[in-house]
Amino acid sequence: MKLKFVSMLAILICAGCSTRTTDAPRERSAGSASRIERVETYPDATSTENTVDGYKRDLAQRITEVNSIKVYTTRPQALLRSVVVVRYSVDGGGRLLRSEIMRSNRDRETEATALASLRNAGPFPKPAPHLLRQGKVELSETWLFNNDGRFQLRSLALPQMDQ
């Protein structure tokens, strides 16, 4: 009986691993090169991440993928044009509930880009149920803007240039 249970459990685990889907890129630097992976979700579009920080990276990857023409993939320049911090919340279904600028240098163009890129990326992968507080997950993200108006998200950003 135990052997049958263990065998069945192993089959279910393997089946779960093979039915994950992908929704957004994950960028990592490997020496001087970077590669893009995709965010893993379960068949019901729930993120496989079990921590708030992991879920935040999933959302950053989703934002980056959807807004790829507005994102730069090299290291941020030494003196950034703008840094915009946005606080936002996502419900259990992955829908953006609200967003607001928490910090900025008052560059209206970059503020609008940050908020629009967040809205455009929805719906997001669903957060794991244990991450929800009162039916939502509260997060903040920092948009780092180069002079050309393209951005990188701090959760995924490469180290900033020295000069």
Rank of each mutant, 00 (worst) to 15 (best):
N120V: 05
N120I: 03
A121L: 04
A121S: 09
G122E: 12
G122N: 09
G122C: 07
P123F: 05
P123L: 01
F124M: 04
P125S: 15
P125Q: 11
P125A: 15
P125I: 10
K126W: 06
K126A: 09
K126H: 09
K126Q: 11
A128V: 07
A128D: 14
A128Q: 13
A128M: 11
A128W: 08
P129T: 07
P129N: 12
P129D: 15
H130N: 14
L131S: 03
L131H: 03
L132G: 10
L132N: 09
R133G: 03
R133Y: 06
Q134N: 15
Q134V: 15
G135I: 01
K136P: 00
K136L: 04
V137R: 00
V137M: 02
E138R: 12
E138D: 13
L139H: 04
L139S: 01
S140C: 05
S140H: 10
S140W: 06
E141L: 02
E141T: 12
E141D: 09
T142H: 03
T142S: 07
W143S: 01
W143A: 01
W143N: 00
W143R: 01
L144M: 11
L144P: 04
L144H: 04
L144K: 03
F145C: 06
F145S: 00
F145I: 10
N146G: 10
N146P: 08
N147Q: 14
N147G: 14
D148L: 09
D148T: 11
D148C: 10
G149Q: 10
G149N: 11
G149S: 10
G149P: 05
